[in-house]
Write a protein that binds this DNA or RNA. Structure first.
Lengths: 158, 158
DNA sequence: ACTAGACCTAAAGCTGAATTTAACTACCAA
DNA sequence: TTGGTAGTTAAATTCAGCTTTAGGTCTAGT
């Protein structure tokens, strides 16, 4: 169904092919290039041609984004990959592991939040001064603006 | 330490007192007012004076934001609260319960994502064509831009 | 050679949730 | 009455992560 009309023999992908294979809009691909996240060679006429390895980078970027990393963080992670050689299994593994850790923290934070909420449901949460969430009305001030009772791992989320 | 200089007897809070007690910036409080999330009476000179019930609303807003609700959604939830009477225990409870559900979904989605990731760590994730995440390179196209393999409940997150 | 359709750029625009700025006014204790 | 702190407004700006627009250029098939 999403079969490229004529996959050229040179193995380089046009931006259109890349949008179809990556699911990312061409505008996003150009944006990522401006951000230094991916790169492309150019034809004599100035059109982009992508190596297939770019697909792997894009998968990486999307996976990272879905774990909640900003593009800035993605770039940092990528900068830590060897620029010269193709990243090895171990390179990606190290990064995956740190994502897993991040997810663990996010999950933990959400669970804590839910449990807090559960403990309040029976009490008409937020309307009673003794409720743990409600109490953060005043406590929260010490965490700075926007902090609320939001656990550290979730601060970036809203 | 954060003791207001002179808590007036009328029980109304100035915006400064409210920033200290809520932990939200004055600019945020004015913004929330423009958005119709909170309201204030005015002095003869035009300065805002808040009733203490506003603290409850702010706690509500912050709790909602931390669960990932947009201000728009917060407003919808608030609109469903009785405008006339002070919301009862049951009013808040109904809303809390829906948050809990939302948290459950978010947690579930994150756990699924982590498990996916875990299953890839051993395989040098993203570098192998058979990896489940890596495969989403091509599969993801069917979910539309930005979707990646991100579960529904997390789509709003990045 | 022609042409449809894919591609190019720079710059502007969008969304949400505020913050910042500038110029000004109110409050209140001494 | 005065002065310093606190408050007011509208409008502009910020940030991320893109998308859209306008006005052109390239590529490839016939």
């Amino acid at each position: 169904m999403t079969s490229d009309p004529k996959p050229r023999a040179d193995q380089l992908l046009t931006i259109g092919e890349l949008t179809r294979r990556s699911g990312l809009a061409a505008s996003a691909l150009r944006f990522y290039e401006r951000q230094g996240l991916i790169s492309a060679t150019r034809t004599a006429g100035g059109q982009r041609r992508y190596e297939r390895a770019v697909l792997r980078r894009l998968a990486f970027i999307r996976a990272a984004r879905s774990v909640g990393l900003s593009l800035e963080e993605v770039r940092e992670a990528m900068d830590r990959l060897p620029a010269s050689r193709t990243p090895t299994r171990a390179d990606w593994t190290a990064i995956s592991r740190s994502w897993s850790k991040r997810l663990d923290e996010q999950i933990e934070a959400l669970v804590a939040l839910r449990d807090k909420l559960d403990s309040c449901i029976g009490c008409g949460c937020l309307s009673l001064a003794r409720c743990r969430i409600s109490n953060s009305e005043d406590e929260a001030a010490q965490w700075g603006p926007g902090a609320a009772f939001l656990p550290q791992a979730l601060r970036r989320q809203p």
